[in-house]
Design a protein around this nucleic acid. Structure first.
Length: 461
RNA sequence: GGCCUCGUGGCGGAGUGGUGACGCAGAGGACUGCAAAUCCUUGCACCCGAGUUCGAUUCUCGGCGAGGCCUCCA
């Protein structure tokens, strides 16, 4: 493939030509959910954005040559708190398992409904504790970490270029630090790699006693295990730049002695709800599940593909204002697009070019409009549309119609045509109105040869 | 206080040192018994100020405004 991918790299704040370390195995890591509660609509954005990138990489380098890892964080103090709250009678480990399994299952079904492919691997933190311990041991041995007050901490001063990703200077940060400095830390910016657990907290045996990992170490461990010490792309939400990604970089680079952890760092922008920050206290907090399956947002359910398109109508680095109006527009667009199969057709160059320019999904959607218009006149164009839409993970589909309904509608259509021949417009229109009320839209056309009226119909999408 | 984004028509939203995409909505028209669908045509915008320039919405600086991060957070 001659396609050159351009990606915006947060590390350099520039758009760069993407060159994989190994074109036979392009490697991408994206920070996945902490499974303590159902994912909210903001969490859907990275899932969708990086799914598009995954699809694009697979197209350019071949399906077998892309590895996409998205972790499941199933060890976290928020999970412990949730387990205690929701299952007070159970032993902690059982309660935790109930919480994480239920939440994980929901996440899998949510992302599937949003049209996301499954990542190549979805490693779990709890299955990679040994790897985390190994990295921490290396960090201590190399002088980048120290023990204090039952914690192992990363020594940020030991890393000369700490803060590159977020462009933060530790000295300047200190001046405005609002957080009380904990006395056992050598420097306020030092962060936890491992902390001891009480009897009532989940823990794993380690050289420092029974404990649990800090927040950032899991991603260092899992990305190394599945993608290697240095890999191509690391993605996540804007808010993860600091401290999460900054600290991942510190851990991985210092442990491995590498100049970078990942070559390209990509971050998606945030989402607002009807112009306001989404938060539980504002009362405008929505889970993906609520949007898909309940009337909580704007009084109705929203199909996954509508949520997906609404998300892709804005460039991934820009903020999105998620609103009912926007969802309605996305729904109208999808309803107008042709229902077709790709049948092995190649995606359109315009769409490919747009996506290759730092995932310009907006321009890609624009090209899709043009393709949709062409599709009505040729099956090849329709197939090309389908192949192109597939790169975005969008597949317009006809509403399934039962045999019974179909037969009933056909009968009514025939009846109406008879009435029209008799110029009985009132009765004919009543049939059309009744069908419309039942969600069936009639469309009259003319047979080009005979000039006779031909009526087609479809269930409103 | 420090760091980082962003400010384009009624709405969404690309892009560009020189004629300001595209979609939605709106208007007009074709078609229709009337609709729907489709097709054609069309009106409307680059936060403010200074600078660089023959020329800036695009570059620089300064304002104003919005948002994010500063150890919970996509």
């Amino acid at each position: 493939m001659g396609t050159t991918l351009k990606l915006y790299n947060t590390l350099t704040r520039t758009k760069v030509d993407f060159t994989p370390i190994d074109p036979d195995n392009v490697r991408m890591y994206v920070c996945g959910p902490t499974v303590y509660d159902f994912a909210h609509i903001g969490n859907a954005r990275p899932a969708i954005v990086f799914d598009v990138l995954f699809r694009l990489l697979r197209h350019v380098y071949g399906e077998a040559h892309v590895t996409y890892a998205r972790n499941i964080t199933d060890v976290d103090d928020k999970i412990n708190a949730r387990a205690l709250r929701d299952h007070p009678g159970l032993p902690l480990n059982d309660a935790i398992r109930l919480v994480t399994e239920k939440t994980d299952r929901q996440y899998q079904s949510d992302t599937k409904a949003l049209g996301c492919l499954e990542p190549t691997v979805q490693p779990r933190a709890t299955e990679n504790i040994a790897k985390m311990i190994a990295i921490i041991e290396t960090l201590i041995a190399k002088g980048f970490a120290y023990e204090a007050s039952g914690e192992v901490l990363f020594d940020t001063r030991a890393m000369p270029d700490y803060g590159q990703l977020s462009r933060r200077n530790l000295d300047e940060q200190q001046a405005g630090a609002r957080i009380a400095v904990e006395a056992h830390k050598k420097n306020p910016g030092d962060f936890v790699l491992w902390k001891l657990s009480s009897e009532s907290e989940p823990g794993w045996e380690s050289p420092w006693g029974r404990g649990r990992p800090g927040w950032h170490i899991e991603c260092s461990a899992m990305s190394e295990r599945y993608l290697g010490k240095v890999f191509d792309i690391h993605g996540g939400g804007l808010d993860l730049i600091f401290p999460h990604h900054e600290n991942e970089i510190a851990q991985s680079r210092c442990a491995h002695g590498t100049p970078v952890m990942a070559n390209v760092w990509m971050h998606n922008g945030f989402l607002q709800i009807e112009g306001r920050k989404m938060s539980k206290s504002e009362g405008n907090f929505f889970t993906i599940h609520e949007l898909l399956e309940t009337d909580k947002f704007a009084g109705r359910k929203w199909p996954g593909e509508v949520l997906r398109l609404a998300m892709l109508m804005t460039h991934y680095r820009e903020p999105i204002d998620f609103s009912a109006k926007r969802l309605e527009e996305a729904e109208r667009l999808i309803a107008k697009w042709p229902v077709a199969e790709a049948n092995g057709a190649a995606p359109d160059e315009r769409v490919l070019e747009a996506l290759s320019d730092d995932l310009n999904t907006v321009a890609a959607i624009q090209a899709l409009h043009a393709l949709a218009a062409e599709a009505s006149s040729s099956p090849e164009a329709a197939a090309r549309f389908a192949a192109s839409a597939d790169l975005l993970g969008i597949k317009p589909k006809k509403v399934e119609v039962s045999e019974d309904l179909s037969a009933a509608v056909e009968a009514l259509v025939a009846m109406r045509l008879e009435m029209l021949k008799a110029k009985n417009f009132a009765e004919a229109d009543k049939i059309r109105d009744d069908l419309s009320a039942r969600g069936v839209q009639l469309k009259d056309g003319k047979d080009p040869a005979t000039g006779e009226r031909v009526t087609t119909w479809e269930v409103k999408r």
